[in-house]
Nucleic acid binder design. Structure first.
Lengths: 146, 146
DNA sequence: TTGAACAGTTCAACTCTTGAACTAGTTATG
DNA sequence: CATAACTAGTTCAAGAGTTGAACTGTTCAA
């Protein structure tokens, strides 16, 4: 009931996320220049966070088919930023790890992204940012329960 | 100063937005099926909101080159969802408008997207959602001041 | 009048994505 | 044990989105 209220809330969410995502996305792309694409940076980020991971894991986290991940990983491997390691026990599995260079390139990009994004976060008070992040994280965890 | 605190906040923002955007993006794509892509739906949404608009306006709003918009608009026009109207006074300008069918297709997609997204928004209390949206909108407006 | 600026398009090249078909390896069941 | 079903990952063709350079056509100002 009160569908109108929720339509209005949905519309506000749509508009805000559209603006923030397009603008931040464009700034991030600009910072990464021609070194990495945004998807490639996120892929390195994911692997770095978990130390190593598989194609299947990445496909689930990114909500895409495994073949999409294979393509991205192949490009990153060609650039020398990732290497593939076969599991000795279960030889179907391929572990993805960052190379030394991949780790450096990621870190450098992340630093640049931080420099352009953080000024916007800093316009909020401590309390505001904490409230905002807590609610955003709550939304993320709800959405993650599939 | 206190760079560590802002790195941590930045990391939390990155993680939450990654999860929410990938999951919602995938759900939205699934709802739109093979009728429209997400970008196409957002393009129709923008035109609908303003009644009519130009390629240049869309390129600015979407933070992409004009040629990217031309490609999307051409596909939408081929499907019969948009028509192009030259300005009679300044014949360089092309106004984009939805066709009857384009408006219907957009509305139908929007309804389906609402059905899958709104349940997640509804898990918040009235106060939480209002606080969250107010802060998200504040971020959007900050980011919009280029 | 002519040159600069602007709106939009075209084109080649690239990345990302899907979905189907495939290879290779593992597990379960009779 | 054999073999069928499943699993991990890759390959491939096709299509969407994107960039950046070159282009057409139009407007405007010096």
């Amino acid at each position: 009931m009160d569908v109108g209220k929720w339509k209005s809330i949905f519309g506000r969410y749509e508009a805000a996320s559209f603006t923030v995502n397009k603008r931040f996305g464009s700034m991030i792309k600009e910072q990464l220049q021609d070194v990495l694409t945004v998807e490639q940076q996120m892929t390195l980020s994911y692997i770095k966070r978990f130390g190593s991971c598989t194609t299947t894991e990445l496909a689930e986290a990114f909500c895409v088919q495994k073949s999409a991940i294979t393509a991205i990983v192949t490009r990153l491997a060609e650039k020398g930023y990732i290497h593939r390691l076969r599991d000795e026990k279960d030889r179907r599995i391929v572990y993805l790890k960052l190379t030394e260079e991949g780790s450096d390139v990621f870190q450098c990009g992340e630093e640049k992204v931080f420099e352009v994004v953080s000024p916007y976060l800093k316009t909020f008070s401590d309390e505001e940012i904490e409230t905002f992040l807590t609610l955003y994280e709550k939304l993320a965890s709800q959405v993650n329960e599939e």
